[in-house]
Each structure stands twice: as C-alpha cells, then as structure tokens.
Amino acid sequence: MLNKIMMTGRITTDLTVVTEDNYSYCKFCIAVDKQKQNSIDTIETDTFTCIAFDDNAKSVSFLYSKGGIITFVGSLRKAPDKSVVIIVEKLHFQNRFAVKVDVDSGQLF
C-alpha cells in the first residue's frame, strides 16, 4: 500500500521543538489554498496538522517561521483522538529561500 502525500502551504502556527524521552518533535499547522473556481473571486483554504520528528523537527523550526511557505513529502496517520495528522518525512526547498546561519557553529543552511 502507498501512503505518501506532498504538501505546499503557509505555516499558521509558531514553530517550537519539544523534546520528550529520546525524541524531539515539532507540531505545526499549514494552510493550503484550494483551486480557484472560474466564477468565484475568493480563495478558500484547508488547514492541516503536521508533525516533524528529530532532525526534520530541528530543520523545520530553524529554517521556517510562521507565515512562511513550506513544501514537504509525508504520510497520513490517525492520531489517538481519531483526527488525521501528516508526518513530515522529507523537506523540499524551492530555489529561492533565505539562507540562515547557525550562530553557534557558523554553519549555513
């Protein structure tokens, strides 16, 4: 069975990495525009809850911020409360994005 999804959307929440036991995660929401209908002027959006773990969580919180556009490949999972979340598996970068520098190590991202 195949369970893959590619999403591009605007981040609607603040990004914070949470560390519990031996793993870390970053839970955030994205707003994805629906396709515009021919006779309708307004664009509607769908909101999705996403979770990135470990290195992906650190990368998401470091490279992106609320209001930024993110593109990633992930998979759908059912949460304990019967809602659906998207697990971020691979980040995709557009040709244009702001380069950030890790102040502690001097590493460019």
Rank of each mutant, 00 (worst) to 15 (best):
D55E: 15
V85P: 05
D102M: 04
I11V: 01
K58D: 15
G106V: 13
S105M: 04
V101K: 15
I69R: 07
G9C: 02
Q37Y: 08
I40R: 04
H92Y: 08
K78R: 14
F93H: 05
V103Y: 05
I87F: 11
D33G: 02
E20L: 15
T49W: 09
D14S: 13
D81C: 03
D104R: 13
F48M: 12
G67E: 09
N38W: 04
A31V: 11
P80W: 13
K100G: 03
I40G: 03
C26Y: 07
D33T: 08
V103S: 14
C50V: 01
K58S: 15
Y64R: 02
E89F: 03
F97G: 07
K66R: 08
V103M: 12
M6Y: 02
T16S: 12
L108G: 10
I69N: 11
K100S: 03
I70K: 00
D41I: 06
K34E: 14
T16L: 15
L63P: 06
N56V: 08
F72W: 09
F72Y: 05
K100C: 00
S75T: 06
Y64H: 12
C26M: 01
K4E: 02
S59G: 07
D102T: 05
V84Q: 06
S59Y: 11
D14L: 02
R96Q: 13
F48I: 14
V32S: 01
V84P: 09
S65F: 08
D102G: 00
C26A: 10
C29L: 12
T12D: 13
N22E: 07
N38Q: 06
V32G: 01
D55M: 12
K58M: 12
V101A: 05
E89C: 08
E44V: 09
S61M: 00
S105L: 10
K90Q: 05
